[in-house]
Simulated assay, not measured.
Amino acid sequence: MAGTWSGAGTVTLDDGSSERIRCRATYHVGGPRMTMGLTCASDAYKFNLAADVQAEGNAVTGSWSESSRNVNGDLRGRGGGGNFQVVASAPGFNADIAMRTAGNKQSVTIRADSQFRGANITLSK
């Protein structure tokens, strides 16, 4: 998973509208710890997600932040072998995030309960 990935997808907003986005992700892996940066943008929408997670067995815990909206919180879930299923939470915000990595392809699915409803992103290394 370590390295730089790029690709595209769609973001869905609370009014039901969706936009195509371009994304770039960077992962740094060291032992049981991983840091991640994901930036996605369209003509009218952008988000900058950062996370710092640690694995203990199959359990994954850590913290996340989204800099363009100044939101941050905790991550909890399960993962291993390039596949992660986590819940990102902050006051007034919860999102389910699934990441699947196979070879040089990665899919990221985010489902949230805020004005940002979700994203489906496909990345390649």
Rank of each mutant, 00 (worst) to 15 (best):
G3A: 11
G7N: 10
A8T: 08
G9H: 10
G9I: 07
L13W: 09
L13Y: 10
S18H: 14
R22C: 10
R22V: 14
R24W: 09
R24S: 13
A25W: 06
Y27R: 12
H28N: 09
V29C: 12
G30I: 11
G30L: 11
T35D: 09
M36F: 08
T39D: 07
S42C: 09
A44W: 03
Y45S: 13
N48V: 15
N48S: 13
L49T: 06
L49R: 06
A50I: 07
D52L: 03
E56V: 14
N58R: 15
A59Y: 07
V60S: 12
T61G: 14
T61L: 11
G62Y: 05
S63W: 01
S63T: 15
E66S: 15
R69P: 02
N70F: 14
L75N: 03
R76E: 00
R78A: 03
G82A: 14
N83C: 09
N83W: 06
F84I: 14
F84K: 04
Q85I: 09
V86Y: 00
V86C: 05
V86I: 13
A88P: 00
S89A: 10
G92L: 01
F93S: 06
I97W: 01
I97S: 03
I97A: 04
A102P: 12
A102I: 15
N104Q: 14
K105V: 13
K105S: 11
V108E: 00
I110W: 04
S114I: 01
F116Y: 05
N120T: 06
N120Q: 09
N120W: 00
I121M: 02
T122M: 08
K125A: 02
